[in-house]
Design a protein around this nucleic acid. Structure first.
Length: 292
DNA sequence: CACCATGTTCCTTG
DNA sequence: CCAAGGAACATGGT
């Protein structure tokens, strides 16, 4: 479930559930998720620690912990990869099949499960150093974007996925942002004019903010009485009516009519990832073609 | 068997 | 040194 909005919504929901809880024990189902720590070092470091605060940086979840001994707080860092989920379940409940790590909190158990195993949960904070600005903060602005894009001939869609440019945009919201900015995903980054960069900057912020807003109103089952929550892009699991239905305007809509002009949405592959766009609304180069 | 999937990192090539 | 492309990581769904 992992782009910035999904992580943000998850963080907001985990915060009140975890704050003040102490880790009594740790069970590990997939030691590689903890790298470079070993299973034993990980468990020893966490056992007895208390959750102070849950926050986010890009697509990473940040768990601030007060250790059992000593005054230094510690930072546990989570990444959901492609299929990671985090939630609480009752201690008596059976562990899920693809559990990477589970933390016993007393009456609850904090679960990190991940079928595809691209996710991570580690005390190694180096990954955070390389991240670019937060897209919803003020240092992500047109001036920054102009100067960051001017020396790259890479397609703008591919640039948006670079977490050192901006932290938290993934494959889905990259397509969505370009659609809203009416920019072709194939345009070389250094060929965007100032107006396009300004539109793109605003589109990225709006698309992410809107997704956080929608996710925040969803009745997801983070407490884990049901194994799955509804916080997913396609929303199919809990009956995708209501707020989900029109969440994504181009992503995964190949062949379907553009919501602006009715032209069939196209799909292309860039950097081995699918890109969806409207060939009519998103033309490369100058602002040619009709505007809706 | 084929191809697809919300992500990141490492290696190679130019 | 950098930019860009591709493979690798691993599993499941269609």
């Amino acid at each position: 479930m992992p782009e910035l909005p999904e992580v943000e919504v998850l963080v907001r929901r985990l915060q009140p559930l975890l704050a003040g809880k102490t880790i009594r024990n740790v069970e590990v189902g997939w030691p590689n998720a903890l790298a470079p720590l070993t299973e034993r070092d990980f468990a020893n470091a966490l056992r007895g620690s208390t959750f102070l605060e849950v926050s986010r940086r890009g697509k990473y979840l940040l768990f601030k912990l007060r250790p059992a001994r000593g005054r230094e707080t510690r930072l546990l860092i989570g990444h959901l990869g492609m299929t990671g989920r985090m939630y609480l379940q009752k201690t008596e409940a059976p562990l899920p099949k693809h559990v990477a790590a589970a933390m016993d909190l007393g009456s609850d158990r904090f679960i990190f499960e991940d079928t595809r195993r691209f996710g991570r949960l580690t005390l190694d904070a180096r990954v955070l150093e390389k991240l670019g600005p937060e897209p919803l903060e003020s240092d992500f602005n047109p001036e920054y974007l102009v100067s960051s894009l001017k020396n790259s001939r890479q397609a703008i869609k591919v640039r948006l996925l670079d977490q050192t440019l901006v932290a938290g945009v993934g494959n889905i919201y990259a397509s969505e942002a370009l659609f809203r900015a009416r920019i072709s995903p194939r345009t070389a980054a250094n060929r965007l004019d100032a107006g396009q960069v300004r539109r793109l900057c605003r589109a990225v912020r709006e698309v992410l903010r809107a997704a956080v807003r929608k996710g925040s109103t969803l009745p997801i089952d983070i407490a884990g009485t049901v194994a799955r929550d509804g916080l997913f892009y396609f929303g199919a699991e809990t009956g995708a009516t209501g707020p989900y239905t029109e969440r994504l305007l181009v992503y995964d809509r190949f062949g379907l009519p553009c919501v602006n002009c009715g032209t069939a949405i196209k799909r292309l592959v860039q950097a081995a990832r699918s890109t969806y766009f409207c060939p009519e609304c998103q033309q490369s180069g100058r602002t040619r073609g009709k505007i809706s």
